[in-house]
Amino acid sequence: MSRMKRMKHEDFSEMLELEALGVLDQAQSEALRRHLEECDVCRAELRELRDTAAMLAHLAPPIAPAKETRARILERVRRSRLSPAESSASEEAITASPPRSFWLKWGLLAASLVVIICLALLLILWRERQRLSAELAQAERTERQLRTELDRERELRALLAAPQTRVIELEGTQVAPHARAKLAYDARTGRAILFATNLPPTPAGKAYQLWFIMSSGEAMPGDVFKAEKGDIETSFFIPPIARNAKAFALTLEPAQGTRVPTGEKYLLGSNS
């Protein structure tokens, strides 16, 4: 540095071409800058030499940049005018790689938004599908139930309308004095329907069993039923041999049923 302080005008004058070509190091360039502040001659000389050096740029063949570059520059300029704060902030970004970082940033943001919207739509669609599936399942259950009831109604009506159908009323015994039941069956086909009410709910491990009391006094075992809330509503078939039974009875038996009655009678009705 001390050497530079002792430099004369001639020394600086010899540095001008090198400065114009941009090959001085930082210390030399700084020393020259200080000299230029005081020396009009060197300043004018450097100006001309810089103009000459700049003419070298014409040696590179002119090549048109991409058309988008112009639009990007003007767009940046407009944005910097709208927001002065953004201008200085954007300059750093521009130095790094302006168009790419700009498009990358907004591109990623847009892509993220699209992904979020798609996920939200998928979630909504998935929930809607779940809801519709549940509704459909419920509707199918209801339809099955209605169809079953309708079938039973039709069955009952057909059964009751048939000339060979017999209807037997069963009454509660002392064990269940309020219990009542109706047994309707087709004497030709054996199709039967049983409606029972006011029975004691079936205890665990037990079931009500139907018995066919034959003329001989023998009890033939029939189907077993559950009366969860004291009611029975079911359809079944009566075997041919039992269709001429003298009477019908309902007893409480083990859940799987028995070959001979072991429990108490709850309902009893004669086949008149």
Partner: peptide, 26 residues
């Protein structure tokens, strides 16, 4: 066009030259 030709000559990379061209005019 003159600047872009110069930048391409120095940088030898079209994408980088486009970047610098924008920096220059800004």
């Amino acid at each position: 066009s003159i600047l872009f030709g110069l930048l391409l000559r120095i940088l030898n990379d079209r994408s980088e030259a486009e970047d610098v061209l924008q920096e220059v005019f800004l």
